[in-house]
Amino acid sequence: MATEQSAQDGQIADPIAYFLQDMVYHGKTERTRDAYERVLREFETFLQTPDENPMGVEKSVAEATRRDCMAWIHALRGRAAESTVATYASYLHRFYAYMNQVGEFDANPMALVVEEMDERIDTNPTRRDISVEAMRTFVADVTHPLDRAIVVTLLKTGMRAGELCNLDLRDLSLSGLDHATRPQLDGKPDSMYVPPEPTVGESYNGEERSASNKRKRETVVPIDDELERTLKRWLAVRPDPISSAGPLFTTTRENWGRRVTPAIVHHVVTNHASDHGWHRQGGDAAENVTPHYFRHFFTTHLRDRTGDRGIVKYLRGDVAEDIIDTYTHNWGDRVREVYEANIYRFF
């Protein structure tokens, strides 16, 4: 990601880098920042190509007008889905609105453009309908111990990629493993604890984190026999962690022994999905299988199997006081029993 550059004569040399640096300070994830940078740099390239922009002259993002913005949005139409066009427009609108709000730009040229657009972001896109049988075939092709541990953990727990990255060994309770676990796991064998606290850029358990856990309340997630075997297989070959925090998932390629990042998790999933024909560059949420799709898969299939939205919401970490209280105090009798009776099997 670009970093903020020095200003000259009171003008920011690289407004996009300035905006992205502020996103870091606001705790936005690396993946979010990368998405913004791709879109903003594409718009910047458009402005720097006289044959494409309306005025036929090269200009900076700080000099862009409403017509420049309209022309870029129009150029996107026909080569991107309507929801993608709306998403790109929202990124550009957010950029200009923020820079105007902090006093770096005099106006937001995207304000009227987004008001007049017909395209809208699809907040609930239709996703691939992948059966358990098809996912079973997919999992069978993932043989690398780390990759399989990442994929099976996401599929069996419904947690977010960042939450997986933040797991430490102390968050895991498995029979036959001799290590210190959290007090929250006392009396809850074969389970993992997902905390709410880790925040990107802040120290947690003695290590600065590269991702935030977005759940507001703690969750104890059961581990079935398939996930148990997968995790034990991974732990048997896991590199010694560099961090004293004892990350559960560490890299085995570059940066040996370091905690995995959301970018690594995304790369693992999309690489295997691409090999399986489930992901392509430029594809949208309706087409591509990503770590977030696994959360959707978990939610859909477990909810349909149990008929119990409350337990699924609890496992996902969704905020609801009545749900959290009910299942926190009845974890052993209700959550584990329902989970083990209904969780899909891959092996």
Rank of each mutant, 00 (worst) to 15 (best):
I242R: 14
V260Y: 03
A263K: 13
K214V: 05
E202C: 00
Y193K: 03
P291N: 08
V220F: 05
D275Q: 14
S274L: 06
K188V: 08
T251N: 14
N271C: 06
L231P: 05
D224V: 05
T181P: 00
G257Q: 07
H272A: 05
S212K: 04
D178W: 02
G282F: 10
R215F: 00
F249L: 13
S274M: 13
D186E: 14
F294C: 11
H279I: 01
T299K: 12
K214L: 09
L185Q: 05
A285G: 13
P222K: 12
T270W: 11
A273R: 03
H267M: 11
G201E: 02
R215N: 15
W278N: 02
G246Y: 01
T181G: 04
Q281M: 10
P247L: 08
R229K: 14
R229A: 15
V200E: 09
G283D: 05
H301R: 12
W278K: 02
P262N: 09
G257C: 04
N271Y: 10
V194W: 01
T181E: 01
D284N: 13
G206M: 03
S243Y: 11
T230W: 06
D225Y: 12
E208P: 00
L227E: 03
G201V: 03
T306H: 12
A180S: 13
P198S: 05
V220P: 06
K232C: 02
D190M: 08
S274K: 15
A180D: 13
L231R: 11
T270V: 12
S244H: 07
H276S: 15
T261D: 11
T261A: 03
Y293D: 08
S203W: 00
L231E: 04
T252A: 08
K232D: 04
A263V: 12
V237H: 09
S212M: 01
V265Q: 01
F249M: 12
R303K: 14
S203E: 13
D304R: 14
R215T: 14
N271W: 06
V289D: 01
V265A: 09
D224G: 06
F297E: 05
R238M: 06
R259K: 09
N213V: 04
T290Q: 10
G282T: 10
R295Q: 11
P262K: 11
L185K: 05
R182Q: 07
N271L: 05
P189W: 03
G307R: 09
T299I: 10
L185G: 01
P183L: 11
P222I: 10
P262R: 09
D225W: 09
V221P: 01
P291V: 08
